[in-house]
Design a protein around this nucleic acid. Structure first.
Length: 488
RNA sequence: CGGGGUGUAGCUCAGGUGGCUAGAGCGCUACGUUCGGGACGUAGAGGUCGUCUGUUCAAGUCAGAUCACCCCGACCA
């Protein structure tokens, strides 16, 4: 008998998401505005994502480094578009000391200790890094330079939600410097494709990806490319971006190098990043009304063993369970034997389901007599008996199947929720009823884009392909098809 | 920053027209019985009622101020 279920996603998707985050012990709201405390279990998922991603970042040739949290306001304001984009959400440090208040009852900011120059807490690190890069880069021999940073950043967003949008978040930002625009453009696409493959292979998420429209561009970039995943409620979630910065930052940070011909030149730069928002994307995409569902590759616990016993056979069951654990450990890390004897098996089933553990193994008297174990899949709920002898390899295979099944589901969801439309009437109907992605021609004018957004809340997510047609809003000739959706 | 709402136990909340020792469910602790889908019984612990000021013999309850948080918009990874 279930006592308290989570809010079903059909009823209130947003509440369903928050319930999962809370009941899977992933994170909780912090006392600091808009921030969250990532709990050990949630952080373990992040660490798995980090580990897999870090490998791929290094395959792109980038090295990890670390730059300061504080950015002098003068650095920050050098690139005009950049400051415009982030000015409205910047946390600013103005003082460096506190003192006792006059009545001695509290601690206040010491007005004497005002900083000569204010410091911005980084919302992104282009500016601090590029100031440094200007001293690192002198010759064509220093290029390409590829630096990655794992860090926290702060953006004072109006409205926050755990993992999806928090005031402070963790991320990875890659920054590269190249001697030609062509090479930089290739880097932008390589990084984008790396994210697309990562989503598919590790997070089991199918995506759309491509160039962004001018209005969705990163502040200070020449071009921005994004990766868009689809959530189960039909809304899009951007979880990664890759920017072609052109020479915009090089010019204002005075990054110059001498090329092979002996001429002084500005190099071409890129930056790309993904954040803890990915954890939110995974939660929203795969989970169901029982709780979290995790792709096995990033699951902190891949298999949980639940022994079922009474006082009489406790020892026998535990011995059998320990044996099963040893067998599984030959092929699978992260197996947990839940031998707590102060909660009932039903309680444990529920708890591990909420936490999204891909496979549960039940062991009781029945299994021991038949020399089997009962294996239950989190993604399908399917129960099978598997012989104890070839257990490890069979369970490994099921883990692979679950990973694949989640990706298949994600692909199906995106296919079912993608519609090509030819008229604006159709566009509005689909966005209004089914949501999802809508492919439509767009003439490229900001006016049409804004009007569509005003009418439907749908925004231009990314470029789809070259194709001749008529702009879905104004009817002018267009050569470009774009992907639209209502986004998080 | 606009519009709405809420602050009482760890959590979710109840406490008409002011009145005596502050209420429930869940959770927590102890003991016992249980254990193949969130077990049950008994006994307990837990609160300066967001903060300040006022009205009153008397304030969780009324008034004013203040702070905090939540929801809906505009902005964003």
């Amino acid at each position: 008998m279930s006592k308290r279920g989570i809010t079903p996603k059909e009823k209130n998707y947003s509440q369903w998401y928050l319930d999962i985050v809370e009941r899977a012990q992933l994170a909780e709201a912090s006392t600091v505005r808009g921030c969250m405390v990532i709990k050990p279990y949630g952080y373990a998922i992040w660490e798995n994502i980090q580990r897999e991603l870090d490998k791929r970042i290094k395959e792109l040739g980038a090295s990890n480094a670390y730059f300061p949290l504080f950015i002098p306001i003068s650095f920050f304001s050098k690139e005009a578009d950049h400051i415009k984009g982030f000015a409205k959400e910047s946390a600013v440090v103005t003082h460096y000391r506190l003192k006792e208040s006059d009545d001695g009852k509290s601690i206040v900011v010491d007005p004497e200790a005002k900083l000569e120059e204010e410091l911005i807490i980084r919302p992104t690190s282009e500016t601090v890094m590029y100031d440094t890069f200007s001293r690192w880069i002198k010759s064509w021999r220093d290029l390409p330079l590829k630096i990655n940073q794992w860090a926290n950043v702060v953006r004072w967003e109006k409205r926050t939600r755990p993992f999806l949008r928090t005031t402070e978040f963790l991320w990875q930002e890659g920054h590269t410097v190249h001697s030609s625009h062509k090479e930089a453009e290739k880097q932008v696409i390589d990084a984008l494709n790396m994210y697309v493959r990562f989503a598919k292979e590790i997070l089991a998420l199918d995506t759309y990806s491509g160039r962004k429209s001018d209005s969705e561009k990163f502040a200070g970039a020449v071009d921005t490319y994004g990766v868009e995943a689809l959530m189960q409620d039909g809304k899009a979630l951007q979880f990664g971006t890759s920017h072609d910065l052109g020479q915009n930052f090089a010019k204002v940070f005075d990054i110059k190098y001498v090329n092979k011909k002996g001429e002084l030149e500005y190099p071409w730069q890129t930056s790309w990043g993904v954040s803890t928002r990915m954890v939110g994307a995974v939660i929203m995409s795969h989970s169901d009304n029982l709780g979290l569902v995790l792709p096995p590759i990033i699951a902190p616990i891949k298999v949980v063993i639940v022994p079922i016993y009474s006082e009489e056979n406790k020892e026998e069951v535990n011995r059998y369970a320990t044996d099963v654990l040893t067998k599984l450990n030959t092929l699978i890390d992260d197996v947990e034997l839940d031998d707590r004897d102060f909660v009932t098996p039903g309680y444990k089933y529920n708890e591990w389901e909420k936490k999204g553990v891909p496979i549960r193994i039940e062991i009781g008297q029945n299994d021991i007599e038949k020399s089997v174990v009962t294996v239950v899949r989190r993604d399908t709920g399917e129960k099978t008996e598997i012989n104890k002898e070839n257990l490890a390899s069979e369970v490994s295979n099921i883990l692979l199947e679950i990973q694949q099944n989640l990706l298949d589901r994600s692909r199906n969801l995106i296919e079912e929720h993608t519609h090509e439309v030819s008229s604006y009437k159709e566009f509005k109907e689909i966005i209004g009823s089914k949501k999802g992605f809508v492919k439509a021609y767009w003439c490229g004018s900001k006016e049409c884009e804004d009007n569509i957004k005003y009418d439907t809340k749908a925004t231009n997510r990314c470029f789809s392909k070259e194709r001749k047609g008529k702009c879905v809003y104004c009817g002018k000739e267009s050569t470009e098809e774009w992907v639209f959706a209502i986004a998080y």
